[in-house]
Computed example of a mutant assay.
Amino acid sequence: MPVSTSNQVTLEKSPFYISDPEALYRIRAMNSSIMVMVIVREPITRLLSAYSHYLSVSRVFGKDVDSFEKHYIPGGKISEHNVLKWGNYADRMEYVYSVFSNNNHAFSFLSVVIRKQVLLLDGDKFVSDPLSQLRRVERFLGIRQYFSEEDVYFDKRKGFYCYKLRDNSDTKCMDGSKGRHHVEVDPDVKEKLLNFLKPYTNRFLELTGEKFDWDV
Rank of each mutant, 00 (worst) to 15 (best):
V3L: 10
V3G: 03
V3Q: 11
S14W: 06
F16W: 04
F16N: 06
I18H: 02
P21N: 02
L24F: 11
M35S: 15
T45D: 13
L48I: 07
S49V: 06
K63I: 12
K63C: 10
D66A: 12
F68Q: 01
H71Q: 12
K77V: 15
K85I: 05
Y89T: 07
A90F: 12
M93W: 00
E94L: 03
V99D: 02
S101F: 05
N104S: 09
A106T: 09
F109M: 04
L120D: 10
L121M: 09
L121P: 01
S128D: 10
D129R: 11
F140D: 00
G142S: 04
I143R: 08
I143A: 04
R144W: 09
R144T: 13
Y146Q: 03
S148L: 11
E149F: 07
E149Y: 06
E149A: 08
D151W: 04
K156L: 12
R157C: 04
G159S: 11
G159P: 06
C162I: 06
K164S: 13
R166I: 12
R166P: 06
D170H: 02
T171I: 03
C173M: 01
G176E: 15
S177D: 09
R180V: 08
D186W: 03
V189Y: 13
K190C: 05
E191G: 03
L193K: 03
L193G: 07
L193A: 11
L193S: 07
L193C: 14
K198T: 08
T201E: 12
R203P: 02
F204H: 09
L205Y: 06
G209I: 00
V216H: 10
